Amino acid sequence: MANVRNKERPLSPHLGIWKWGPGMLVSIVHRATGSGMATVGAALLVWWLVALAAGEKAYERFVDTFTVSSGALNIAGYVVGIGLTFALFQHMASGVRHLFLDVGANFELKSNKTSATLTFLFSVVATIGFWFVILETI
């Protein structure tokens, strides 16, 4: 009985039919940044706790991964840090955008595209500003 399909009812269109826009991209990136922050953040928390419990040498290795140690810059640690910072700002900006959409505002096509584009611009500028302040204080 479940396999019987009403032939008068249209099928839902697939992704190939839709024209991609900034709103679709922001929605997908919002989900990806949320999942990424949760996954990477949990992994870093577990690594930190294990390093803390394993002793001074293990903890030192963890700290060296994310800081400048003996004048040498650890690129991998900064890539993760900058990536998480960008994800945080992008997710936050997209969340604020969705808050306005939830109350019924910003559905006009031009303002919707503008706000979607501004979330990316904000996240890039905020990430650069955040890391500029962080690196200036070192």
Rank of each mutant, 00 (worst) to 15 (best):
G104V: 10
E108H: 15
A126M: 13
S94A: 15
I82Q: 01
L45W: 07
N3V: 03
K110H: 11
V50G: 10
V96E: 06
G83W: 08
A2R: 13
Q90H: 15
R97G: 04
R61L: 12
T137E: 10
E136H: 11
G71P: 03
A54C: 13
V103P: 00
S123K: 08
V103I: 12
F100N: 07
L99Y: 03
R9Y: 15
W47V: 04
D102W: 15
V26C: 08
A54P: 03
P13I: 01
V63M: 06
A51Y: 10
V124W: 10
S70P: 00
A53I: 09
S94N: 11
L118H: 11
I28R: 11
F132N: 15
T33R: 06
F120V: 09
G77D: 11
L44K: 08
E8A: 01
L25H: 04
T39H: 09
A93Q: 07
I138W: 02
L135A: 09
P10F: 01
V50S: 15
N6S: 05
T39A: 11
D102E: 10
E56F: 05
D64S: 14
W48E: 09
F122N: 02
L135W: 13
T85H: 03
R5A: 01
G83S: 06
V125Q: 03
F66P: 09
H91F: 11
V40G: 01
Y78E: 01
G16Y: 02
F130M: 04
L15D: 00
R31N: 12
V26I: 14
S94T: 14
V63Y: 15
L88M: 06
R31C: 11
N74H: 13
L84D: 05
I75P: 01
L101M: 01
T39I: 15
W47T: 13
I17S: 00
G34Q: 01
A116L: 05
A76Q: 04
S27K: 09
I138L: 03
V80H: 07
A43T: 14
R61Y: 13
F66H: 08
L44G: 07
V26S: 10
P10E: 07
V4S: 12
L45R: 11
F130W: 14
H91W: 14
N6T: 02
T65M: 05
W48K: 11
D64M: 08
T127F: 05
V4W: 10
V96H: 04
L84G: 06
V40K: 05
K19M: 10
